[in-house]
């Protein structure tokens, strides 16, 4: 049996040796951050919107930071699995999350999660896209007023879609129906693409999403969920003008686990600002008409706070919160 023992030790030694080689750098003191690759955790699968933002951002962010950056997809449960993983990571600045509005400000109201709004050091916001109220291009509805008249006459006859229960399209539509004081059914789909299919086949009549979909599908915008009219859509009135001050946009920001050293957060935030102007990122955001909106650490923190309160109230009014 001594042979076997010797053998096992050798195997272990080889494995340990290899692993140490891989992880070299972990042991040495943090002289100049970043000393090893920084992992950006994306809480959605590859190919989605958040993933596209993160992967477009990766190269420019790495250059601005003067280090290496890896993107890791940890998908599942409306983004909460990956977001929880960020919250549970070591607060050393080497694990960050690229997290959109949903997991940060709506999911914590819907159910118990291993994180909440105090689990973070806010680094920066990257993109922010206002939402618009959408109907099919051949729809008889041409204004929000049409919608209110028809739906008041036929409560429960019309259907609005969403990208899933508790998602931003759902929130925006629920709030709209509430503000117009009309009743409609909610038919959740599992994403914007599925919702657009339901709209094309006539299963749903209303949807809410950023204006990007206008150029891709046969849909028209009746109103925007903004305070000012959207640049590029001068003919689309705002909900505020129509007397329903509703404000919804989909944003994506970077967060670090609570307790990440302030100087590291500062450095990340500055690099983030620089990267939002980077060539790769600009190319991708321009081609997808994504609005880049950089916010520094403090601004982003108070922005998330206000969004958290606002969305919590809407969910409560819609009878959806836990």
């Amino acid at each position: 049996m001594t042979n076997l023992k010797k053998l096992l030790t050798t195997t272990a030694a080889i494995a340990v040796g290899a692993a140490t080689m891989v992880a070299s750098g972990v042991t040495s003191a943090m002289a100049e951050y970043p000393e090893r690759p920084v992992t950006l955790i994306v809480p959605f699968g590859a190919g989605g919107n958040t993933d596209a933002v993160a992967r477009a951002f990766q190269a420019d962010f790495a250059e601005a930071l003067g280090g290496e950056i890896v993107v890791k997809n940890t998908a599942g449960a409306a983004g909460t699995i990956g977001t929880a993983e960020v919250a549970a990571s070591e607060a050393d600045g080497y694990s960050l999350g690229v997290i959109p509005i949903g997991p940060l400000t709506t999911q914590p109201h819907l159910r118990d999660l291993p994180y909440d709004k105090d689990s973070w050091e806010y680094v920066c916001n990257i993109t922010k896209n206002p939402m618009v109220l959408l109907v099919s291009k051949d729809s008889p509805f041409n204004s929000v007023e049409d919608v209110k008249t028809e739906l008041s006459a036929n409560p429960g006859k019309y259907v609005y879609g969403s990208a899933g229960p508790g998602t931003l399209p759902h929130l925006a539509m629920a709030a709209t129906m509430g503000a117009l004081d009309v009743e409609a059914k909610h038919l959740p789909d599992s994403g914007t693409a599925d919702g657009m299919r339901s709209m094309a086949s006539g299963t749903i009549q209303f949807f809410a999403d950023p204006p990007l979909v206008l150029s891709r599908y046969d849909v028209k915008a009746l109103a925007s969920f903004t305070d000012e009219r959207i640049e590029g859509l001068p003919d689309v009135p705002t909900m505020k003008e129509l007397g329903h001050p509703l404000n919804f946009s989909i944003w994506v920001g970077i967060v670090a686990p609570k307790g990440t050293p302030a100087d590291v957060v500062e450095k990340l935030s500055a690099a983030c600002g620089e990267a939002t102007k980077g060539p790769n990122f600009t190319k991708v955001t321009e081609s997808t008409s994504t609005n880049v909106e950089y916010m520094d650490s403090a601004t982003f923190g108070s922005f998330v706070d206000s969004e958290f309160e606002k969305n919590g109230q809407i969910l409560k009014d819609a009878g959806l919160s836990k």
């Binding site: 096992l8 195997t11 272990a12 080889i14 494995a15 340990v16 290899a18 692993a19 891989v22 992880a23």
Partner: peptide
């Protein structure tokens, strides 16, 4: 704790 390489070698063995 051991990472992928740390366990893959012994497991393969």
């Amino acid at each position: 704790w051991l990472g992928y390489i740390g366990v893959a070698g012994p497991l393969a063995f």
